[in-house]
Nucleic acid binder design. Structure first.
Lengths: 254, 254
DNA sequence: TTTGACATTCACGTTGCGTAAAGCTGTACA
DNA sequence: TGTACAGCTTTACGCAACGTGAATGTCAAA
């Protein structure tokens, strides 16, 4: 079975230019060249192209692909793991960018004149109060005053760095939530991701995490005007949506 | 306050090359050029650079930045919102990529072998696509969009039971084919039985059966790498063998 | 033999600069 | 005043992964 560029291109769904380029960079050379100078590919080349395209799908650079497919001894899995790390880094950067853009939009829209720090301060205080109100008695009984006061201290004593991280997380929760809201399914991947982020965010406030408390807080977001207003700022009923997502996430109250 | 490239660069933390480049693409022109041809920047340019760098931080392209900063009437907030959407899209793609990479890593590490169902899912999708590509136009013309869409729906809406039945049938086709392959005669009873089973299998996908389409599909099994790999998994040239058997079965192309 | 479909090899364009290369200008020091 | 040295200039290639012509050669059918 022999193929010309056109044939192989159609078969594999790539342009002829791509095949010529792969020849040029020595990633995939034709089996032979006929008397007219046409590239002729055989079965081995088809197989190799399949491999190449497979890695390309995963976003691996052609350079890396070359290493992987030319040296069969080369550990493909390890290469992929490295690649995964790079992807994670990219996503991290992207998340930071998104958070900043969101912040800027909020600022320029003038709706929010409060600085993030102020917002944060308000939140922090409310967090302590609510926590105290809802679980204070119970927790104080269970763990003693010392533990609870320590927890409250934890919130008050956060470093600037931590506060920034919290702000970033909070923005990410909001952004992810806004996206997830579009398809309306609190069980969707995106919504669950938002719930996960929310848990991360929470971890800055609570010394121990429990599903019950998380689910309870979610309900509180709906019941308490202040919280509800915060989440519903851009889109009504976002607070409810978040509650549902968290309920599914925690597996409670389904 | 006047600055040379070097000065301004240090002030803003960018390279002189960058400033020259911005001049070149008309993003930031110096206030004037002195007698020796040196670029001289004034306060207005410094401010403008601050703006540019601000948007650059947010990952906005220089082209878009140009639009934003040159036309003050231009709505910066809207541009940012659009930009935010793009960032979300990027993150979505990235997430999909990461998921695929993770899956692949898991696969190659042998922890998770792809289930038949997953394989089947890919097949199903491909079935629809190919069917559409090869016969879509013709069939749509003949029977109307409704019929075709209904057929595609048929595939997507199969019950679990039907899917199990299909998987069972597919396995039976493969098994029968493997047996038949041993004596090498595509006209043999066993091979014809395989072709018959294949037709039954097909009936789950197609609303109307035609010999021509069946024969065409058989040829496609040979031409398309993905299909060919599926049938040749245990024994090379099984796809060809199946094609021949089906051609005899349908009485076409003998 | 002409036509049309397909093949070939340049070579530029994309994004945002980094990095020479090669030469001119300005200033400090011997 | 000579010269060394820092700092400026323009020109232009390089990066990733091809897309997109342009100009030209080849093959089978009419």
């Amino acid at each position: 079975m022999e193929y010309t560029v056109q044939h192989l291109g159609k078969l594999a769904g790539v342009s002829t230019r791509t095949l010529r380029y792969y020849d040029e960079i020595e990633l995939l050379k034709p089996a032979r060249i006929n008397s007219s100078g046409y590239r002729i590919y055989g079965q081995a080349e088809v197989d190799r192209l399949q491999q190449i395209l497979f890695y390309r799908e995963l976003g691996v650079s052609l350079d890396s692909i070359k290493e992987i497919v030319t040296a069969p001894s080369f550990n493909g899995a390890n290469a992929l793991k490295e690649h995964r790390e790079q992807l994670f880094d990219k996503r991290k950067q992207l998340d930071a960018l998104i958070a900043n853009v969101e912040k800027t939009i909020a600022l320029t829209e003038g709706r929010v004149t409060m600085t993030d720090k102020e917002k944060f301060e308000g939140f922090k205080q409310k967090m302590i109060e609510d926590n105290e109100e809802k679980y204070g008695e119970e927790i104080r009984e269970k763990y003693g005053d010392e533990t609870v006061d320590k927890s409250n201290q934890k919130i008050k004593n956060m470093t600037q760095e931590q506060q920034d991280e919290i702000t970033r997380l909070a923005n990410e929760v909001k952004a992810t939530l806004a996206e997830a809201f579009k398809n309306g399914d609190p069980a969707s991947e995106l919504a669950q991701a938002a719930a996960g982020l929310h848990k991360m965010w929470l971890s800055y406030y609570w010394n121990e995490y429990s599903k019950e408390a998380h689910a309870g807080l979610a309900q509180m977001y709906v019941d308490d005007e202040r919280f509800k207003a915060y989440y519903d700022e851009k889109q009504p009923c976002t607070a409810e949506f978040l509650r549902d997502a968290i309920h599914i996430y925690t597996g409670l109250k389904k």
